[in-house]
Design a binder for these strands. Structure first.
Length: 106
DNA sequence: GCCGTGACTTACG
DNA sequence: GCGTAAGCCACGG
């Protein structure tokens, strides 16, 4: 059964993030199959071969903060966009308590 | 085929 | 509680 490429698995997980929710790199990596892919996830999203299809803006650090290197038009722009999605923000951070897609703890 | 880099995470001091 | 260090995998040159 098709072993999808590592990136593909990561993209698949990212695309599964429901609107109004966000996920952390480590979480995605874990859902993708290996939690050590945290860095690969960052790399995969950086590659972002399918902009508009992969909601990379829904991917944040485990602090609920958007990574500094996002800057694909403005880091703050990222936050604003997520707010429009319905994500609850606390200053410049995502309210992981409510909007982390996760099931990671709790 | 090896080395370096990277949008991270976790652990230890 | 904060800062520093190490670990991990994949891609590009």
């Amino acid at each position: 059964m098709k072993e999808k490429g590592t990136f593909e698995m990561i993209y698949d997980v990212v695309m599964e993030i429901p609107k109004g929710y966000v996920a952390s790199y480590g979480q995605i990596a874990e859902l993708a199959g290996n939690r050590r892919w945290a860095r690969v996830v960052g790399y995969a999203l950086h590659a972002n071969p399918k902009p508009g299809v992969i909601p990379c803006h829904r991917v944040v650090t485990k602090d609920g903060k958007v990574s500094r290197a996002f800057a694909f038009g403005g880091e703050n722009r990222q936050v604003e966009l997520l707010k429009e999605e319905g994500v609850v923000f606390c200053e410049d951070r995502v309210d992981m308590k409510k909007c982390q897609w996760s099931k990671r703890r709790f």
